[in-house]
Amino acid sequence: MSGWHIRLQGQLGALAVDVDLRTPSPRVVLVGPNGAGKSTVLRAVAGAPLPLRGRVEVARRVLQDDGAAVRLPPEARRVGYLPQGYGLFAHLSAQANVAFGLTGPQAAERALAALARVGAAHLAPRRPPTLSGGEQQRVALARALAIEPVALLLDEPLAALDVGARRTLRASLAADLDGAGRPALLVTHDPRDVRAFGGVVAVVEGGRITQLGPWEALRTQPASPFVAELLGEDA
């Protein structure tokens, strides 16, 4: 099965996390109100040191299984993680950012090629603070894809953009995800993103998955007022 199996439990501050997410779909879009635990799920999958116990499996690779005392460190997980705001290293050029995850000879050339694949080769010498939100997203995506990850984790990849850039980049990001052909876990609060990304939608509320299914299924049977409201925005 190429999909996801995430079972995480624990207390994080005021939030009681009890996530059970099992789906054969390689692409999952997490939606939910602020503070519901969406970003937490992404960080846990990336390997952040959180007090959450359970099991994380993607595309048959076990990243964490506390029952078997398995918890891979982030550097052994081979996941490409784009946090909110993209997490570019401000003191490094775009090319050096991408090369950060590469080792061996020709790391610089391979970084440049990775930038070119997302149409960002011309940004190579620029520092992240001088880039627009959309350009930062391209560079961060190139950096995450350059390590040939088994899965991608994208936290609000379009939230930082203005309306025009959002529309363009939504389409190209969806195309990149299809082209990369890798399992991906995405967080968004915009129903237009949900539709563009496709895959299965998981609704996270209060640290739990309250509904799981394709967008159309949520449409016919919204399980909570939050889902109904989200669908209402999808005009």
Binding site: R43, A46, G47, A48, P73, P74, E75, R77, V79, G80, Y81, L82, P83, Q84, G85, G87, F89, F100, G101, T103, R143, A144, I147, P149
Partner: peptide, 15 residues
């Protein structure tokens, strides 16, 4: 320093 920056660095293979 944003903890997410460090997590990104780790996912990119950094100890």
């Amino acid at each position: 320093v944003d903890p997410d920056l460090l997590l990104v660095a780790r996912t990119l293979g950094a100890s």
